[in-house]
Nucleic acid binder design. Structure first.
Lengths: 242, 242
DNA sequence: GATCGAAATTGAGGTGGATCAACTTCTTTC
DNA sequence: GAAAGAAGTTGATCCACCTCAATTTCGATC
């Protein structure tokens, strides 16, 4: 523990700078600014299942994920939760809240042991003051995020469950070894289900429905897309428009 | 027609500058920058029911509403629509899309005869380059917008219809003449319903339910909040937790 | 103030997805 | 590698909200 902490302190700054430099919003920033940010940043290790911050917490900066995965979720008093976003390596969260200087509106929970980089607000504001290109990147980043949110609203208010699942699989396809399209779910089906706006039970049934249509085959978290075009068709036109 | 156009050209710039100066994001901008922006801006009159822009259109700038009202909505091929936001006087839309340099993701339809101010991207980018305070305001504005979207997602995925209606009324209450809280719906119930994520039929029934509970009384678009606390209670805790 | 189209209400009936419950299969831990 | 717990599946049932259809009311126009 003592030794690990020691090692982190020694190699910390360089690692931090590396993580920061690879964030999309800092791509255009000069090296000196990055070093400056890294000097004020700190790393934070969180274990699987623990909260990075909870709704209502003050937010004195924003977070970047170095490795691991964090879910941003809303929860009701009754314990139901809606996953807003899954944040993976190289992605950030909390920027918008930092600027509003309001308490955190969501829960952020680590889904895996994760290393986060915390960027305090002040140095970011300072950089903003001095580097218009950074401002531009940050604005682009926020705009992108907003576009994603609008897409989610569109999906969950205008499309049915099957359509959303099909669209999700289509959007997350990677081509596997022999050119076969596959999706590896980044976390549990329960969490994915909540992200897609259905219960785990319904998600399970929808996957089975797609499998019975011969469009996919499911093995644990590995999903093979057997008929990409049919899947894309459902994603676009829904189940009925056969 | 010719005369009106003439008049607009003459007094246009001053009016435009006035409208722009009163937008939250330009509050901190120096007068000279405002004049500069106003010089590149143009006004656009749209009649009730006509489209300002449609999904897929290129967006070479963003819009401010001087008077009137615009709805931003997503629509399905089948004609159903989901209203994302109602934009009234002194509010803006299209900033995020402008920065993404992507086609417009929503339809923008005038709900009343409206005067819009169109701010082309280039001068905004230029101002951004030169005035960090403006960048800060713009970022704050986008963050605010995002916060609103998240709140909408929360409402429509975690709360039931009655709860959403109650929350809407509670949030939009103004105190009328004799200190009685009232809400004047800004547009048709059909549009409000879509904004709240229910059909007009359901909205009608939910209002009636609240009325039968003695919490409100409805007269056309004028709604009187008879028991503010009971309404707020439903908004927070739902109908069951009596 | 009569007329016509849009908006709103009301009723009857259907349904997508939630809920509840039992069980199976993974995963983690000691 | 056994035990305990988390995640996933499956079936039965339920319900909030939607859909369809018939009026009624409102609001603009002549």
């Amino acid at each position: 523990m003592e030794m690990q902490s020691d090692a982190e302190i020694r190699r910390g700054p360089a690692v931090l700078e590396g993580v920061i430099a690879n964030l999309p919003m800092f791509r255009a920033a000069p090296r000196q600014s990055l070093a400056e940010l890294a000097r004020h940043a700190r790393s934070q290790h969180v274990h699987r299942g623990t909260a990075v911050c909870r709704r209502g917490d003050p937010m004195a900066g924003f977070y970047a994920v170095a490795y691991g995965m964090v879910k941003l979720a809303l929860r009701t008093d009754a314990g139901e939760e809606k996953v807003l976003r899954l944040v993976g390596p190289g992605e950030t969260f909390g920027e918008a809240v930092m600027f509003l200087e309001k308490p955190c509106p969501v829960d952020a929970i680590a889904l895996a042991d994760s290393l986060l980089v915390v960027l305090p607000a002040e140095p970011v504001f300072a950089l903003l003051e001095r580097d218009p290109r950074f401002a531009r990147s940050l604005i682009a980043s926020l705009s992108q995020r907003m576009h994603g949110l609008v897409a989610d609203v569109e999906a969950s208010s205008l499309r049915g469950g099957l359509q959303r699942v099909a669209a999700y699989l289509d959007a997350h396809a990677e081509s596997g070894e022999n050119g076969v399209a596959r999706v590896r779910l980044p976390t549990t089906k329960t969490v994915i289900a909540s992200h897609l706006g259905v219960t785990k039970e319904t998600f399970s049934r929808l996957l089975r429905e797609l499998a019975q249509l011969g469009l996919i085959s499911v093995a644990r978290r590995e999903i093979t897309l057997l008929e990409r075009s049919g899947l894309a068709d459902i994603a676009r036109n829904g189940p009925k428009a056969r």
